[in-house]
Design a protein around this nucleic acid. Sequence first.
DNA 1: ATAGTTTTTTATCTTTTGATAAATTTTCGA
DNA 2: TCGAAAATTTATCAAAAGATAAAAAACTAT
Lengths: 195, 195
Amino acid sequence: MEIEKYQSGQDFIGFVNNLGALEEDVAAMLSRQLETLYCKKGEAILVQGATCRYLYYINSGLVKTGFESSDRTFIMRFFAEGEMFTVLDSYLSQKPSTYEVVALEDTVITRILRTEMDKLCTRFHAMETFFRKLVSMASVNMMSRIGEILEEQASARYENFLKENPELLQRISLGDLASYLGITQVSLSRIRAGL
Amino acid sequence: MEIEKYQSGQDFIGFVNNLGALEEDVAAMLSRQLETLYCKKGEAILVQGATCRYLYYINSGLVKTGFESSDRTFIMRFFAEGEMFTVLDSYLSQKPSTYEVVALEDTVITRILRTEMDKLCTRFHAMETFFRKLVSMASVNMMSRIGEILEEQASARYENFLKENPELLQRISLGDLASYLGITQVSLSRIRAGL
DNA sequence: ATAGTTTTTTATCTTTTGATAAATTTTCGA
DNA sequence: TCGAAAATTTATCAAAAGATAAAAAACTAT
């Protein structure tokens, strides 16, 4: 995992601007705090037990966020290029994370330290607004995920995933998809066979 | 459902101050926008298909937020006195809600219009910070709920609920608890019987 | 290309949960 | 207090998903 400081982070900035335009000087200050990460496929970006100190933006590649339970593992969400993510509870509490983040492909990431993000949010209302919108979007996604898990059987959740994320299906293993759906890999295989 | 305008809304203000102190004049402006709602047990505070225009604070009582599916119903969360809530997706998008909110007891609520909240957030950085923290807390709760539903069987989720919310158990029906756990009332009865 | 590893499928059997119906208990209003 | 309605439990059978093992297919590195 290579780290490069002082990258322009244009994609990251663009993402922020998309949720609400920043003034030039704020964008410049933000840009100065970004660094770029080059992760190999399979590499852990955050391990369970570590504290998540960054907000991340994916320039290219794909990651999974999840956790290991007794023996199985579960995936909370996949994030692909153009998406921003963090491990929210650990990021906010600055306590060790029960979740891990692993690259599923060679992945290029731009990140900013939470401490720097906090400074910017305190100083610039627009940054706080951006972060509020970001967390709001995450919440809405999680709401619908909860609703779906409660309501639908695994087979329907699989069908929905196909419909909503056809492009992702080519890029993730069926094992990981099963972990996301909350079933075993064997069960998913059975569902796919249409039994 | 009776509505009373120009209440002081001290509890609501107190909740906000708890997440980050407001200046006197901001608190006063906020206070002016609050109104109080008196709901009877069983009354709908928001029906499916209506748009959620308010952020709510519960002074006393208990509500459930959930949705009706094909035939069963599901509960996203219970909110009791001292908690703030809204139907986030509808509140943010101002589109019809797929979720409903129903009072489980006679409930007194203080609410503020989203349009007024937005004005305050735009005008006062501290209000935006408050709302960001509120949504952040909701997100963290939802994360752990997703993790738990994925990981645990219904029986373990029931045990956890007992441990985490012993006081609520006395106040909600087992049918509603089953809807929250994502199982049928009959299944919950079986789990309680310890089979 | 091929041997070895990993991923996916198939098969069998068990456990959990759902559907349905009926019995029992509780709640609540007249 | 009584009786109807609602909530909860119990029982039976069916469907969905887990555990395990083994076979087949797909990837990978030499």
